[in-house]
Every structure is written in structure tokens, then in C-alpha cells.
Simulated scan of single mutants.
Amino acid sequence: MGVIQRVAKPTTQRGKRALEKRASKLIENDKKALFINGQSTSPAGREFLKCIYAFKKMNSIFLGRKNPILPFEDGEKLERMSKKYDASLFAVTTHSKKRPNNVVLGRMYNNTILDMIELGVSDWLSLSQFRNSKVSCGTKPCLLFHGVGFTQFPEHVRLKSLLIDFFRGPAVTNVSLTGFELALQFTSFEEKIYMRGYRILLKKSGTDVPRVELVEIGPSLTLSLRRTKLASDDNLKAACKKPKELKVKKKKNININPLGTKFGRIHMEKQDLRKLQVRKTPAIKKAKQLQIARRKAERGLANTVNAINSGE
């Protein structure tokens, strides 16, 4: 006998809104992140999670209590927690003698683990260790990636995509220069990732373009790759698939030259200008009458000449 799946039906307006929020949409909500402390943690791992949580505090959940979770050994509990809190991103910190200062970053697709990367944290300097003014909570950062590793090594390429998901912030169409004040830099060098945080200062330059200065505000740390569980190409393609309604349809017979000028080509049947209806104005009508009278006079004159010639 087959198992009949239960369909959740809301009984209250609050439950109805909750189900509508979780339902599929053409334009999905901003990704929610889940930050979890493992059974055994270290100060560096906890501070790293708190730092990421501070950048993504507007749309994330932090579980400070200890949780016996090992993502690479058993991910079912993590998947249940992700479904419970409706979170598609997760970060788990653990600590052991074999893997000290351990942090696992990952993401979900359809409430199952898509991919995750295990990182080791070293050379840790928190936000509080930099005696500078900080940026406001929820500021959308400018992400900078340097190094050939982000284009050559598959693990670094996937880590770049994962970091963009964590730090990109809400989707916007316009950016104000006054709110453009946070820069996060990731540098790939000798199989390690160096992360730095800067505050962007726009100062007067005497021209319309301001002078840009960077002040380091933290965090400052070094990340080393340990274990990875990357999604297959088919799963990644399914997770990145866009609905047909959002795909831009190509318009035929429209070309754009290198200067950006748009040209359109129109296909029409050959016109018969003899059947073209024109407006009969008084001037055209009078001219036509004069032309008819002139032709009659010419024909009468020709008949008279022919009659004289025949009489002779």
C-alpha cells in the first residue's frame, strides 16, 4: 500500500501567511542563514560565527546552545533544522584535536544538503580588536576576490560561490554612495584564503568623483580548506535553474551595433502604389479638371486639323 502524503492546511491567518512565505515563488526570498555551535567549540570558531552573524543579522538565526551535529558524518539532523527554520544556508563550528577551530559552511536545496566546505580558522582578529568606527548592521558589502585560485581550483570556485551567498545581502536595483561603506576582501594564495574587512571612506577630492580610502575594521583571519562535499553538475544545474517566466525572450530582427544603437528590421509585402488612397484636396481636384480640359482642347484641335486636311 502506498503512503498518502499529508497536505498541511492552515487553520489560522498566521498559519496561512507562514505557508505562503515558505511556498515556491518566481522571485525567491533572501536566503536565510542558520548559525550553529557544535558540541565542542573553540573561541576562534565561535567568534567567527558571531562575526558572520553580525554581517547577516537581518536575515539569520543564531543557535548559541551546544548541538551534537557533525555535518559530514550525519546531515539528517541539520536538514531537519533547516526545514524547521526555513533556512537555506548554514554554518556550524566544531573543535577537536584533529580539526581545531573548525567551521563548516554549506547550503541547502529542496531541504537537502547541496554542498558544504570545511574550513580551518587561524590568525584570528575580531571586530573588537580594531579600534575604529564600524559600519551599521545590515550594510550591503562590496565583495572583492583576488587570486587565480578562484578561477582555477574547483574547490575555491565553489567556495567563492558559497561566500557570495553568505555575504551578498538583499537584492537591490540601485546603490547609494552614502551607504556604500563596507568592503570584504578574499585573497587566494598558496591554497589558503585570507579574509579582510574594510570600511570605505569617501572624502573630498575637489572634483565630482570622491577620493576613496580604506580603513581596516576587521575581521582578519586565514582560512584553510579541509574537507569538501560538492554537489554534482546535475544537482547544481537543477538548483540554479530559473523559471521560464523569468527568462528574457530573444526578440527577432533586432540588432545592436558596437556603439549601442538599436536597429530593427521590418518585413512587409510589396505595396501596389496604384491602389494607394490619397486625400483629394481642392487644389488636386482643380489641377485634374484643368488637365482634362487641356486634353479635350488638344483632341478638338487635332480633329479640326484632320478635317481641314481631308477637305483639301
Rank of each mutant, 00 (worst) to 15 (best):
Y109N: 13
N110K: 15
D123W: 01
G120F: 05
N110V: 11
L127W: 06
N132V: 13
E118P: 11
N102Q: 10
I113H: 04
R107T: 13
T112D: 07
N102K: 01
N132Y: 13
P141S: 08
C142M: 14
N111P: 05
N110Q: 15
K134Y: 12
L144Y: 01
G120V: 03
T139M: 10
S136G: 08
T112G: 09
K140V: 15
G138Y: 02
V103P: 01
G138R: 00
S136L: 11
T139K: 05
V135Q: 01
N111Q: 12
E118S: 15
G138D: 05
N102I: 03
T112L: 05
L105H: 08
M108F: 11
R107Y: 05
R131Y: 06
P141Q: 09
M108V: 06
R131P: 07
V103Y: 02
Y109E: 09
L105Y: 10
M108T: 06
V103L: 03
L127G: 06
L125Q: 10
L127M: 14
L144F: 03
L144W: 00
M116L: 10
L114T: 06
T112K: 15
N102G: 05
G138S: 09
G106T: 04
N111K: 13
L105N: 08
M116I: 05
F130Q: 02
G106Q: 03
C142Y: 07
S122T: 15
D115N: 12
L114R: 01
N111S: 14
V104T: 13
C137I: 07
S133E: 08
D115H: 08
L125K: 13
S133Q: 07
L119K: 00
S133L: 10
T112S: 13
G138E: 03
I117G: 03
L125R: 05
S133D: 11
L114S: 06
S136P: 06
N132C: 14
L114Y: 03
D123R: 04
N110A: 15
L105D: 07
S128L: 10
R131W: 05
S122P: 04
R131Q: 12
F130A: 08
L143A: 05
L144T: 05
V135T: 14
V135H: 02
N110E: 15
M116K: 00
M116D: 03
S136R: 14
S133Y: 01
R131S: 13
S122Y: 04
W124E: 02
M108G: 03
N110G: 07
S122G: 07
Q129D: 15
D123Y: 03
S128I: 12
P141I: 14
S128R: 09
C137S: 13
L114N: 02
L125N: 06
N102A: 12
C142D: 13
R107N: 14
P141D: 11
P141E: 10
S126C: 11
E118M: 12
I113M: 14
C137Y: 06
L119N: 00
L105G: 09
S122W: 01
M108C: 10
M108L: 07
K134I: 09
F130K: 00
Q129V: 14
S128A: 15
W124I: 09
K140P: 10
G120Y: 04
